[in-house]
Each structure stands twice: as structure tokens, then as C-alpha cells.
Amino acid sequence: MPSVKPKPASLLLLAVVSLCRAAEPPSVKTEVLPITATISDDADIQKVIMPLAAEIKATFDQPLVQAPQGLLRGRRGEENLLGYWVADVMRQSAQGVLGSPVRFAITNAGGLRSNLRPGQVKVADIFELMPFENELVVIELTGAEVIQAVRESIIRRGGEPCSGVRAVVEGTPEKAELKVTWEDGTPIDPAVTVKVATSDYLYGGGDSIPSLKKGRKPFTTGLTLRQILLDQCGSLAKGRKELLPPPPGRYTIPVPIQEAIRDKKFSL
């Protein structure tokens, strides 16, 4: 940091003011006080919180929507249909907030902490699936950067859950080729700029997709991923619809290459 060199005039004013104050307040003690369980609860505040906490807990048991097949992250070699649903909801919510098209969404499978089992989905199930406070963020990427993000996610995780594109890997672990198109099969113009929905976690450089850090014009929506999933379940139920898994087919990766990815012996 450059040192500030006051001009003589301001210095004079400054000095006189200082003398009027006749004091430069030095700190005498600073510390961080952790709020731990050793500190007892304040009775008055507990009286306010307790019934509200009970109310919040009661909402956890509220039924949201029927999911007759469940939504599963997929076992080895299977696609992560739960993740695809989350990415679809992210893209759709981002479009709603922005009021303009969002072409691509990507999240990290590691952030989805449980499957949605077949049957009634409750509020608590969505909290279990998404316990983090991650926020929906919209950024701008070029088509080339979208392809690169998909490539990175394949190399590190065998393809992170995404929405809006189809990725096909062909060839062998030693010599592989990646083709990425928009979901309708049309080619991605590397130079085009598109809106991309992701989480603040991935945009911040956490986890598997470093290209997302390059995102421009970030828009933090203030919506947690959990909240948009809760809202989506609510609106499905309102429309008397069931929660069904999206169709597979977003990543097509030959088994030998999937194994090479798991063994961390794959580059693309």
C-alpha cells in the first residue's frame, strides 16, 4: 500500500483538528470471542425461539410432491439423474430471475448429499439432499468456455451434472475425442457469449471445474439451491404433477474411459 503524503495545507488542518481532539485513540484490547456451548442460553430469547424452532421443525415433515420412481444419483456407470434435475431447476430458476435465456447450467455431484427415494418427498428430504447454503449464481461464458467446463468436469469427475448440452466422448483412454453440442444437437459457436447458471461454490473455484472462475458479470441471485428445489417441488405439486427423473443421455462415455477417469489416468 502506498504511503499517504498529505499536502502542507491539509496537514495543517489535520494537525489542528488532532490537537482539538488531543487524542489518538489506541486500541487497548482486541479479541475474537467464539460463541460456544459453554455459554448458557439467554432465557428471554430462548422463550421466543423455542416455539418458532418447533414450527420450523414441523415444516420439515411437510409433504412436498410425489416422486414415484425417486431421483437417484446413479451407481457406477450410470448417469446422475438427480443431478440433471438439480441442474435443470438451476437453469430454469436463473431464467426466471433474469428474464432472459440461460443456455447452460452445471453443478457438482459432490454437493448432492442424498438420493430422493421413491415415494413422498418431504421438506426434510430436500434439506438432506442439499444441506449447504450455496447460492444460485449466473455468469457469462463463451461457447468455448462452456465446452472447456464440460471437458474439465469429465476429466475430474466423469461429467458433473449439467443442463443444456450433450457431451459424447469417443475413442480409447489413450486417444479420446470430446464432442459437445447444445441439447438439441446444434453445434456450439465457440465465440458466442451465453448465460450460465452455477453455484457460488463452483464459481468461487471450489471443486472440479476451474473454468467457471473465468465467468464474467456474475449475478448472485440470493436464492439458495435448496430454496429453488423446494420451490420447484411446491409448484409441481400445485400443478398436480409428479416429480420424475429427466431422461438420460447428457453424457455418453465408453466404459474403458470411465474406468480411466476413476483411476485418474485420463486426459482429454
Binding site: A23, E24, P25, P26, S27, T30, V32, L33
Partner: peptide, 23 residues
């Protein structure tokens, strides 16, 4: 999870304080 604490002391009219040195 934390509460921050910063203490400050001010002494009026002392040359030492005016010079900006610590109390």
C-alpha cells in the same frame, strides 16, 4: 459463530496522546 471485541481508550489533553503514541 464469533463476537469481535475492540477496546479503545482516549486520554484528553495529554501531550503523549496528541503525539499518537499508545496508551
Amino acid at each position: 459463530v464469533n463476537l469481535g471485541r475492540m477496546d479503545f481508550a482516549v486520554a484528553h489533553g495529554t501531550l503523549r496522546a496528541a503525539s499518537g503514541s499508545a496508551l
